[in-house]
Write a protein that binds this DNA or RNA. Structure first.
Lengths: 104, 104
DNA sequence: CAGATAGTTCCAAGAAAGTCGAACTGATCG
DNA sequence: CGATCAGTTCGACTTTCTTGGAACTATCTG
């Protein structure tokens, strides 16, 4: 199913340690960097960060980021759009995303 | 052995994902908060964050933080002092520690 | 309706982390 | 020196992550 609406944690329920964990994987961090830079992307476009990886692996990383509250995953026609919950995260953890994204 | 000198990663070798991972555990994050607030502490004093936890468990967390480059662990008489590598981390990942520590 | 497309979910296997008791070691104190 | 103290390391066990192939589902296109 492509079009199902996923659960996303409420802003207030997002935990710092979960966010840190989600960002602590290089593949996931690369993905977050991509959508931070280029804006919302389809899953296929996101996969550009590691074209060799199987779809299922990628989907798992997306799930981890979504459940941690880092990313939104919403139906968009026959595709899905992945977007960063930037404003929300900035609100809840001021400066966190900025420092992570600007880190060399 | 209490007095052995441990390896600590050079600042340049500290990786963002490793730091994020080290901080993604609640027990370790609590510990980092403690020494950020109260300054360098002996291991025993650090254990105040979770007095019920066995020493060995605690020691493993310390090792994880040390190897990630978050913390320094140095001999001090018959004890050891645990200190936050704050200036170094601020230098390498500006704003990161501040945002993590100030997060509610 | 038949394909093709875009992703997810299921399942299993391997890798990595966390947990904790027990043994160990170096420094200090009597 | 012998005992104690402060912490680390070892070893075994359990849990959680990661990975990836295969099956599945929904949507769009012809």
């Amino acid at each position: 199913m492509t079009t199902r609406i996923f659960e996303h944690p409420d802003l207030a329920d997002i935990e710092l340690t979960s966010v840190l964990f989600a960002l602590s994987d290089p593949a996931r961090l690369d993905l977050v960097r991509l959508i931070a830079k280029d804006g919302p992307q389809t899953v296929a476009a996101c996969q550009a960060v590691d074209p060799a990886a199987p779809k299922s692996t990628f989907s798992h990383h997306l799930k981890a980021l979504r459940e941690a509250g880092v990313v939104r995953n919403e139906p968009h026609g026959r595709q899905r759009m992945i977007s960063l919950r930037r404003d929300e995260l900035d609100d809840r953890f001021p400066g966190l995303l900025d420092s992570v994204l600007s880190a060399g």
